[in-house]
Design a protein around this nucleic acid. Structure first.
Lengths: 177, 177
DNA sequence: ATCCCATGTGTACGAGGGTACACATCGTGT
DNA sequence: ACACGATGTGTACCCTCGTACACATGGGAT
């Protein structure tokens, strides 16, 4: 039974947790489901992550890093272009893809509402994203743009409506002084 | 044991469900916890609400009605005043009160992300709120204002930060053409 | 070479949950 | 007056979960 000597078992558990949340939501997250998804015994998950919150923290942090990378690519540093249009397009690409991915990241993000342990990670995320936007505008406007993007995403995801990129562009443009 | 003849048992179950979610979150919602909170036998909850989603739908709908009433009071129909300031103040009062109440309503609202059954109710809510705001501005702006308010609330609640009413007022004002 | 400890494995227990179902009771239409 | 259906009650089954614990194993410090 020598599955011994698994250097990045921790990483694989995090990946498995992300897949589980993507498929069944946080409600489907348990030590057992993660263990099954990662093909490791139950005891291994409880060893590396004593509580499910620890797993969520790790998963949220990784999801943040992924999204920050994507956003950085979509936001060229030179401010020659139209920032509102760039952001609206980035949102469109994000929401236009697999709904699973968006749901996954938002669900982990929103989980911070009831779990104080996740709040510092959520705060990191908004700070990092704001810093990214602040390359193209002032910090206060950056925060407002982020808030509006969050709100637009929420409305689309929660009501089951469709994303209107032109509407988003106009609204975002109004926030830029 | 004649607890028979309970005309508004359904209503009492909904109230109990709201109290349970307020105290322990959706994670703590179960037929049994609601039954205990409402002081009725287990079978009664499963009779009136076959699934927990039905309970959540009813609870979310009631929470919406409560909040819509409050918002209507805070938004006088005459447009003599400053709309952005009114909204920022309403947000402040809402976020300044018991964190429990805000968390409760937001948690039910956000639950629609993963539960399609809740999405029509969430959509109703945004439409009703937008109609309220549309008394003071155009429909497109009303939607944008709502989205920004959602985003600002989220950032406060998820990151554990504090609410800055002046910042909110400025950002909201920019959205009004 | 040896020892210690981080890591990995298997299993068991008690708590709590959804669901089903048989039975009790009352209101109401006929 | 009566029967039937809506509503209420109690209980039992089976599942999943978190947790704890005893044991195995191999790497690296000494």
């Amino acid at each position: 039974m020598p599955r011994r000597y698994d250097p990045d078992r921790r990483r694989r558990l995090i990946d498995a947790a992300i897949r589980v949340v993507g498929r069944d939501g946080i409600a489907g997250l348990s030590h057992r489901t993660v263990a099954a998804e990662a093909d490791v015994p139950l005891g291994s998950t409880t060893y590396h992550f004593a509580t499910l919150e620890e797993l969520m923290v790790a998963a949220l942090r990784q999801a943040n890093e992924n999204f920050a990378r994507v956003l950085a690519e979509r936001l060229p540093e030179d401010d020659s272009g139209d920032l509102a249009a760039d952001l609206a397009r980035a949102l469109g690409e994000w929401l236009g893809g697999e709904r699973t991915g968006v749901e996954l990241e938002y669900e982990l993000y929103l989980a911070a509402l009831r779990r104080p342990a996740l709040r510092p990670v959520a705060a990191e995320w908004t700070e990092d994203a704001a810093a990214l936007l602040a390359r193209r505008t002032d910090p206060v406007t950056a925060r407002a743009l982020l808030a509006l993007m969050d709100g637009i995403c929420l409305q689309v995801l929660l009501t089951g409506g469709s994303y209107d990129e032109e509407y988003a562009r106009v609204a975002l443009a109004r926030l830029i002084p």
